[in-house]
């Protein structure tokens, strides 16, 4: 398999005053063509920022301060804004967290889908026809009529369907779904997840799900990348992540998933403490202050190291873990 997306030592910083404050500390991540990957972590772990950096959508004061993003055979960090524009929405597209705020309130939804195509040179008339098909495909009833509606006339779930239609309009090779269901009702969540997964198969898209809830996407992905405080701490096939997590943080995340079939387990486990704020400078392993397995060696930051399957950034192998 060939790598479609390759992040090497990607760093994102926020300018504050004259200094740069690094928030994403050198992410290495390779996604093979056709693969489906989940990037998991708490809010503030840098997962969304990493993906926005891939799309070149970071805005002041955030910016990429190091590393490369390769999509296919091109390094996106070396492209001009004009060149990036031909890739955004075309080769790579993104679905965002909050459909209530992600659509332009003053533009008809149909026009917003059409725009995703005309921006890449599709003639207006053709884009209009394709827009109606797309709206129908994402499950919007009576596209001819609803295309003329404004976003405020739509529910959250319907708006997210419109966002999906926008993202898929140019049949991108890479789809990034950034917590696409977090802002939706639970009943709608499953529909949206199923829809994206269905379209992913249909179009053969390489897909990255960004989520803070591993349970939501466990069934949909091949691989899980766990991020913590701006670092990748584990990167492994989904089965292994669930059966034999290689990083104490991954294990703690799994323990925090509710499991109604297990009566012995406390309903919702917590990880003690809280993740370091971006302003804290952490020496050594960033998870160390909250980690039950921490040893002296953790004063030095562990790099991602290969395990039997996947990679993990921890000095202590699972068989040495105290419970």
């Amino acid at each position: 398999m060939t790598a479609l997306l390759e992040l090497a030592d990607l760093r994102v910083s926020a300018r504050s005053g004259r200094a740069d404050r690094e928030i994403v500390h050198g992410v290495d991540l390779t996604v093979e063509a056709g693969q489906t990957v989940a990037v998991v972590g708490e809010s503030g772990s840098g997962k969304s920022l990493t993906m926005l950096a891939v799309m070149g959508l970071l805005t002041d004061p955030l910016r990429v301060t190091g590393g490369t993003v390769r999509l296919g055979d091109r390094d996106l960090t070396a492209l001009s804004e004009r060149e990036l524009r031909t890739i955004r929405g075309n080769d790579a597209a993104m679905i965002y967290q909050d459909p209530m705020t992600s659509l332009n309130p003053l533009m008809r939804v149909g026009d917003q889908v059409v725009e995703a195509m005309t921006a890449h040179g599709v003639p207006k008339a053709e884009a209009g026809r394709r827009m109606l098909d797309l709206l129908a495909r994402v499950g919007i009833p009576d596209p001819k009529r609803t295309a003329r509606a404004y976003p405020h006339e739509f529910s959250g779930g319907m708006r997210q369907r419109v966002m999906i239609a926008c993202a898929l309009a140019m049949r991108p090779r890479l789809l990034i779904a950034d917590e696409p269901t977090t802002a939706l009702d639970v009943t709608i969540q499953q529909q949206i997840l199923a829809l994206i997964d269905e379209l992913r198969r249909e179009l053969g898209m390489t897909t990255i799900w960004v989520t803070h809830d591993l349970g939501v996407v466990a069934r949909l992905v091949d691989r899980v990348v766990v991020m913590y405080a701006g670092h990748v701490v584990e990167d492994a096939p989904v089965r292994q992540v669930f059966s034999a997590p290689q990083h104490p943080y991954t294990k703690a995340l799994l323990a925090a998933l509710p499991d109604p079939t297990d009566d012995d387990r406390p309903p919702l486990a917590q990880i003690p403490g809280r993740p370091p704020a971006a302003t804290d400078s952490v020496e050594g392993c960033p998870f160390r202050p909250r980690c039950a397995q921490a040893v002296d060696a953790c004063a030095t930051r562990p790099a991602l190291q290969p395990r039997a399957q996947g990679r993990a950034a921890c000095w202590v192998p699972p068989h040495e873990w105290r419970n």
Partner: peptide, 8 residues
């Protein structure tokens, strides 16, 4: 951001 993401 959505519009930029579309390549507008």
């Amino acid at each position: 951001r959505t519009a930029r993401g579309k390549g507008v």
